[in-house]
Write a protein that binds this DNA or RNA. Structure first.
Lengths: 250, 250
DNA sequence: CTGCTACCTTGATTCACATCAAGGTGATTG
DNA sequence: CAATCACCTTGATGTGAATCAAGGTAGCAG
């Protein structure tokens, strides 16, 4: 609706993205949209999507307890989702890269069950849930797609559960690197070289480890020449080695 | 469809349940059904539900990789869902009590992402997913309800993630006991006395602990007079004590 | 009743990761 | 260009739960 994009801060954008974005021309649509939508279906979906939320680093997209109204698609940048336990500790429940959808945990209670904040400047598509529901009832493909998205979130969480409950520190870190690598590949970026958007603290928190352990694992993998680690820059030197360390589904 | 119930095994049923069950008269419908459904909506839902699957202990409802066709509601008994990692280890991802829905993790890939087996004799309602989709498109309340159910599964998984990544053995076991207690209460059963349907191995597996640790925690809690434990019979002697051990969102 | 099997408990020892402690690096700022 | 801060690394030590080991108990089959 409201026309964002072209304004002010052109100088600091870490990754330029399309002016006049819409779902039809968005290069992420193969990731976030149902593949089988007809082009005028896409137009209808496009009409309900709001693109008015560019976030600066550390800004919140929503907070735990906020009224649930929309789900969100990441257009650029990265976000983390986290819950705060009553004794003040934080649990990172996920990282969200471009093309991925977040906020679905809020549907259950009409309130967001976690908070989401930008790890770097991020452009977001907001999808009002009531509109989405109405549209879903009319477009079977869209309904199916959203069921699938939610189901996918469930299976991802179950992966993480397994990781946390059965795997060593090395395995966990390796699995995360492979996950990020795979998600980069899906967006046609390098699967072997990337910059981690999150801090060691966030990684540790997500994986149920302390910062020190994460750091040590990175050092160890560097020594083994599986990774090259330069602060947040990661290069996977030996993908097979990494996979064998991760010790998961291949 | 096929008419189950009245047949053979009446003698061994651990919990008698209604003959000629239907959603309208099922005493679990406040748990598993959308509260806001009109009664002829319930009739339509009832028509697509199949009740042809009474499971014996250790029988599978579905296995990882099976084609996904239905989601399932537990009518009596308990099931566990689990994934097998490629190196043969098992990860229990959830326990399902009467009134609860399972199988939604299969939607994402049209194949079940986990296996489900009965921990004791169990009666199941099968809900074919294509019918459910069609009906959802016609009944906004039903569509909403299923979105909520899936979202709820996500938030539950996130709870478990937090538990596994941040909490001690005592806290994990306490949290599980409270969860089971709460789910019993919801079904109008005792919140303080119940029989665990799962083994110590399953508990440990679910909570990321070994059998020995689970056993020690039970012993410790018994010594502290928070629980009375007699094999699978549990009595919560001090609910507040248990909550304070669990150390979660109160 | 006897033996078998599955499951649970308890103790002794070990180990992976947490915790504690210190120092390093790089970016930002007055 | 010091100073501050946020973040990362490395080392020394401690600890909660895993592992190893041995019995105990209940249900079931013969």
């Amino acid at each position: 609706m409201t026309n964002i994009a072209q304004s002010g801060d052109a100088a600091l954008k870490p990754c330029t993205h399309d002016y006049q974005v819409n779902c039809g021309n968005c290069r992420l649509n193969s990731i976030c949209l149902p593949l089988a939508l007809e082009s005028d279906d896409i137009q209808q979906l496009d009409d309900i999507i709001q693109r008015s939320k560019p976030l600066q680093k550390n800004q919140h997209l929503y907070r735990e307890g906020d009224e649930f109204q929309s789900v969100f698609a990441v257009r650029s940048g990265t976000l983390k989702a986290y819950k705060t336990t009553d004794d003040g500790r934080e649990q990172v429940t996920g990282f969200y890269f471009p093309g991925e959808i977040l906020g679905m945990d809020g549907i259950s209670n009409n309130a967001h069950a976690s908070s989401a904040k930008a790890l770097e400047t991020a452009a977001i598509c907001e999808i009002p849930f009531v509109s989405l529901e109405k549209l879903s009832a009319l477009m079977p493909n869209l309904q199916r797609h959203f069921f699938q998205l939610m189901s996918h979130e469930i299976t991802e969480d179950q992966q993480l559960i397994t990781l946390l409950s059965k795997n060593s520190a090395d395995e966990r870190v390796a699995a995360l690197m492979l996950s990020i690598s795979g998600r980069n590949a899906r967006r046609k970026l390098s699967a072997t070289q990337f910059r981690l958007p999150m801090s060691r603290v966030d990684i540790g928190n997500y994986l149920g480890l302390t910062v020190e352990t994460v750091s040590r694992v990175f050092s160890r993998m560097q020594k083994m020449e599986v990774l090259r680690v330069d602060n947040k820059e990661i290069e996977i030197l030996d993908p097979d080695g990494l996979r064998s360390i991760a010790n998961l589904g291949q």
